[in-house]
Design a protein around this nucleic acid. Structure first.
Lengths: 340, 340
DNA sequence: CTGAAAGCGCTAACAC
DNA sequence: GTGTTAGCGCTTTCAG
């Protein structure tokens, strides 16, 4: 079972292998008859193009590298799903790498992508990434680079994100409209811009509605279900008064919900709760958790489309930096809906 | 910014490019001094190996293709995460493809993998896959093929699965031990072996404990949260008596739970519920959902390890067909725990 | 419309 | 220890 190459097909048909190559690539200057004959024998001989050889010669691989922190986070696997769908539909393949939130692995991933001569790189950076060397390398190599969600602003690259500021704003606004006034916000202690943006949205919404911003109501920590619970426990101990909670992400919000229920607090009557991310469990828990949807699949598709557009613009010589910002969606559920 | 090749490094150092190639590949017959010099100039000139050229020449790509139905299903993204972790640690990269549960896309994915000359293919088949042509092709090409979870038994390939029969058995056994006797089982109407195995486990557990198998208590359909709800509604209408439900997967179990709660049924006192898959939401809902854990990350890692082992055995000439079967884990939570 | 020829950047067998 | 040489299987000018 020797592998068959275009040369074998050429011999079979008494033409040169370049004619075969052209026919296979649907070159315009080949007669329909030849094309038909070539395709038929290719099929018959079970020929299969060698993309490696093709890539080496042409300089294009039709592969794009995708680095994400972890596929085990629904957000990322969902975005990757979107990227993959659109890219495959357009003849590209995805090389996948997980950074596991470490700078070291992120670098290694980018390094292999570059060695594999990918046609582009899509990335969402790790929480550890403060050294941008690997990304500078991508740019130096003139490999197209697109960020999504977690970007590096200084690099000024095309990106697709959601408007976290707006997400923070509409979450807070919703609580205000439901009549809540002392809204506790749980934020992160890390310097990640998306969380700072959500916080900024929270503050601006309060100000917009003339509600005083109370620093005591802004609590920062290492977000998790457990942290959400502990925030509520400590608030009770310290006697902190609040009538709603806006948590930076759903698991933390879930912790809040669980602890409040344990304390027999009525949700949403006494205290309203809203999270962020629209994790699958939100619609399944009791009471159902209000949240902000980040349009993950759409984000993936947008990233892919942006890449394809970039390629096209490159050919037509256009050059503009696109930063797509998607709208967050307010998902109102029982945990925060006081007035029907 | 011309790309630098081993030839450029060779010129710089007045040696031939093959010496450079050897040095870079840590060939034993190269002096330490030369190696050092080569590495330094390579670094200085910002050289980066071209994997395409290397692959074309050597016949190895160090890439393996992974086809899964969808990354949006936690089970699959989690397994892929495991595969990726181990493979990357061993110098392999992952080409990713989603079949979206269609035969057509699955075929396309395999086709491109073959064209890309991947060193192996890891697959979990789509629910539509009844024509095995694409997989025969993989085997014909002598490309290593490993299945996980959803396999094609006729092909007799290495695989990693969990013991679905045992999962069905222990889920049912647990319910029996909790004192439930009329256990409703929701199964699938499709011909997928994993679901049939769970059903078989259910039946055997009943027989083992001398409980009559009542065909009325086995309901098949297109599993989903909605289906779980409708099963309960219809059971109430038809007056079907049962005191527990074992659903083939968690979303269906969740539908069961929700509908029972709507009917004010006490869980687990009146009716016990257990699912399958250990989705993230199970520990967050009220009551918490008992389930069977499938060890997804471990499964991914096992698949990767099996691939690496296959490669090694290939070199040493060994040849045995390994089918790894992982143990399902019983996760007992409030929805089925009557006796503490 | 088709053929001839060069070469992408590397590996590996064979010399010396 | 290092050099020579021959491709891997394609794409892509340049001819005709």
């Amino acid at each position: 079972m020797k592998k068959v190459t275009i040369l074998d097909i050429a011999k079979e048909l008494n033409v040169t292998f370049s004619t075969v190559a052209r026919a296979l690539n649907d070159h315009p200057a080949i007669s329909a008859a030849t094309k038909k004959a070539v395709r038929e024998t290719a099929e018959r001989m079970n020929y299969r193009q060698n993309k490696i050889a093709s890539s080496l010669r042409s300089g294009r691989t039709n592969v794009i590298g995708v680095v994400v922190p972890s596929l085990r986070v629904t957000f990322f696997s969902s975005v990757v799903a979107g990227i993959e769908q659109v890219m495959n539909a357009n003849g590209y393949n995805i090389l996948l790498y997980q950074s596991n939130e470490t700078l070291d692995q992120e670098k290694k991933g980018i390094e292999t992508f570059l060695q594999s001569r990918v046609d582009g790189i899509i990335a969402s950076i790790s929480t550890e990434t403060t050294d941008y060397g690997a990304f500078h390398e991508i740019i130096k190599r003139k490999t197209p680079l697109i960020f999504f969600d977690r970007t590096i602003e200084q690099l000024d690259m095309p990106s697709v994100t959601i408007d976290d500021y707006k997400g923070g704003f509409i979450a807070t606004e919703h609580l205000i409209r439901q009549g809540y006034r002392r809204i506790l916000h749980i934020s992160a202690d890390r310097e990640i811009s998306i969380f700072k943006e959500r916080l900024r949205g929270y503050i601006d919404a309060l100000e917009y509605y003339n509600i005083p911003v109370d620093e005591e109501l802004i609590i920062k920590g290492n977000f998790s279900l457990e942290f959400g619970k502990s925030v509520i426990r400590e608030a009770r101990l310290s006697g902190l008064k609040f009538d709603a909670v806006f948590a930076l992400e759903d698991y933390t919000a879930m912790g809040v919900l669980q602890q409040l229920l344990e304390f027999k607090v009525k949700i949403p009557d006494e205290i309203g709760v809203i999270g962020f991310a629209n994790e699958a469990f939100g619609s399944l828990v009791t009471p159902q958790l209000s949240t902000i949807d980040q349009q993950t699949l759409a984000m993936g598709k947008e990233v892919a489309k942006l890449f394809l557009k970039l390629k096209k613009d490159e050919m037509t010589g256009e050059k503009k930096l696109e930063k797509i910002v998607l709208d967050p969606l307010l998902i109102i559920r029982a945990s925060s809906e006081r007035h029907k």
